[in-house]
Design a protein around this nucleic acid. Structure first.
Lengths: 360, 360
DNA sequence: TTGTAGGCGTTATCAG
DNA sequence: CTGATAACGCCTACAA
């Protein structure tokens, strides 16, 4: 018997084929079923046989085939994530957060990074993921308005789906940073410093976060009993520096005086500051500025940018957690907890670009 | 028969179970084998039955089970990538490049983003990936010296492996940007402007790219018949702005005069420029500066940074392509092409931080 | 051109 | 406590 076992080991090695559960069984001198029990921690195995099996597993460096397991269990232990370009720092953070959480729970994450131009092919990516039999989905494409119709394939497959940064999505859970409160904090801080004429440059209107931050801005003004002035609100066609500079130019040309600016992204803030500098206006002496995002360079520009930090990594992690929890509860058959909206708090980071208005 | 087929459809739908190849066969009134032939494009199927099968597939939204397929073909159509923190822009680019290439070829990519602190657990991540039966591996952790021993699990499993940005790795293929030439280009440009006393701040010495760029710097000096001066070489403990500023401070305190600086990262360059500014020295009038990386803000700082752009996305794509090609050629049994070193060209981006030295 | 048998590596079920 | 046997969904090989 011992000799036979040895031969099996040799067979398996020479053939270059991976060891299977039967190879292990043969080497340990038990049935493949017993090996399965050992692997899956079934208690009903004698300690001595258990050790013999474990030894065989080690000797053959046996690793169970996820395909064979998945075939019978109908589970892949994988999540799919469709994200906007991950070369954008925010989305990279979201993916990193989701990936870490997913891995921690013994699942793995399949990521598709989608260029922003390719709109409307959400369904294609979903189908790709579903064809891989992912058990859950995370969608992080806030600039693309998702319709329930687009997400139909996922629903049909009964796969839990969570969106990141999208606007309210009937029937689906959305995770996001609390942009309303972020905008409110930024603006309220300016109000608290004594500013009453506060301009703002919003991000592109198709982004829900831009709307939310604007809402927060208005909220803070109301709280400070400051009348909103439409001519102090300008929209930037994208989140970048040059667009921010152009927006600031338009704002200044309106000749409505202001002493502070809330820019909805750090790059917009940087562009605005550049325009101010070009006109001989100083920050924060002439105009105070608050940005949004806390990008890596924000603390290094001069003067260092006061801004709002977003826990994007946390958003990714929470999204993954929700999907995985739903998967787990499905096992326990305790029903759906239903769609929700999860908001993580933003945090104001005070640095050097805000001062009290002149003459106070 | 038609009635029977209908009932099968209903059965499948009511049970909530995914349609299998047999469901399709039943609905189309053929054997499951014929369905298989249609799916795999076997030509030996009558056009009429083909269409009937296709119709049934559509009606049931049938998608073949990758698990069942993988079980028999022993292929997962997946690649694994172990990357340094993807919140670092460079690695996000590498992942994006690899992901796009992988997806284009019908494979998918499983990514693990690893914090830089967790050293030496390379094997753990490899094993995780291999347990998933990835068919190939990409490793992008240039700051961690990889040993052949660490990569043993992959070799043992016969899985092709390509490293990104690592130093020479006996027996393995490495893809990288041509850092030597990048450093050479940066320095040569300064030489061409008439500089002869050129300082440099390197990245952390454990990064192979730092060594390579320094080599390029020396090469350019030699080509310009300029004696290398050790007191003009400073090392930064990390790639960041503050470390760059500190390094510049040390450089200036040595009192060895120089008219130009080659900084091995844009952030180091920005830190150095800040230190210069703090001492009343102007860029490029008093000191010319060339950075490295072309980070997004490089073109927006003032003065706009002259730097070296790296095709990192391309590096990721090439790495994926090599792995996939090897996989394909394995099928064709045309043997290993053996380990190689692939270098992608860096590109100098001229902006505003370089001028001729004063008095020329 | 189409259908039938067998097996991929695992787990579930039911005897022993 | 352990082992035989039958799935899981698909594909390859062979038969009709």
């Amino acid at each position: 018997m011992g000799a036979v076992s040895r031969r099996n080991v040799t067979d398996h090695r020479q053939s270059g084929r991976r060891a299977t559960i039967r190879d292990v069984a043969a080497l340990a001198g038990v049935s493949h079923q017993t090996v399965s029990r050992v692997i899956n921690g079934s208690s009903k195995v004698t300690e001595s046989t258990r050790e013999r099996v474990l030894g065989a597993i080690r000797e053959l460096s046996y690793v169970p085939s996820p395909m064979a397991r998945g075939l019978i269990s109908n589970r892949t232990r994988s999540l799919g994530m469709v994200s906007a370009e991950i070369s954008d720092h925010s989305f990279a953070e979201a993916v990193a957060g989701a990936e870490a959480e997913t891995r921690k729970r013994g699942y793995y994450l399949i990521v598709a990074s989608v260029e922003d131009e390719s709109r409307d092919d959400e369904r294609g990516y979903l189908r790709l993921m579903l064809a891989r039999r992912v058990e859950g989905l995370i969608i992080a494409r806030p600039s693309v308005p998702l319709s329930s119709e687009q997400l139909l394939p996922a629903v049909a497959a009964g796969v839990p789906l969570v969106a990141i940064g999208s606007s309210e999505l009937p029937g689906f859970t959305v995770v996001d940073v609390d942009n309303v409160d972020g905008g409110r904090q930024a603006t309220a801080f300016l109000v608290a410093q004594g500013h009453r004429r506060i301009a703002t440059i919003t991000g592109p209107h198709e982004w829900p976060s831009a709307q939310a931050r604007l809402e927060g801005y208005r909220k803070a003004l109301r709280a400070g009993r400051i009348a909103a002035d439409r001519s102090l609100v300008e929209t930037s066609p994208d989140w970048g520096l040059e667009a921010g500079q152009a927006a600031m130019k338009r704002l200044l040309e309106r000749a409505t005086p202001f002493t502070a600016l809330f820019a909805q992204s750090d790059l917009i803030a940087l562009g605005a500051m550049r325009e101010l500098r070009a006109r001989g206006l100083r920050v924060p002496d002439d105009v105070s500025v608050v940005g949004y995002d806390d990008i890596p360079v924000a603390e290094f520009v001069h003067p260092a940018l006061t801004t709002v930090r977003q826990p994007i990594r946390g958003v990714g992690a929470v999204a993954a957690r929700i999907v995985l929890d739903r998967l787990a509860s499905e096992d326990a058959r305790d029903g759906d907890s239903g769609p929700q909206r999860h908001l993580l708090p933003a945090e104001l980071v005070v640095r050097e670009t805000v001062a009290s208005p002149r003459g106070t």
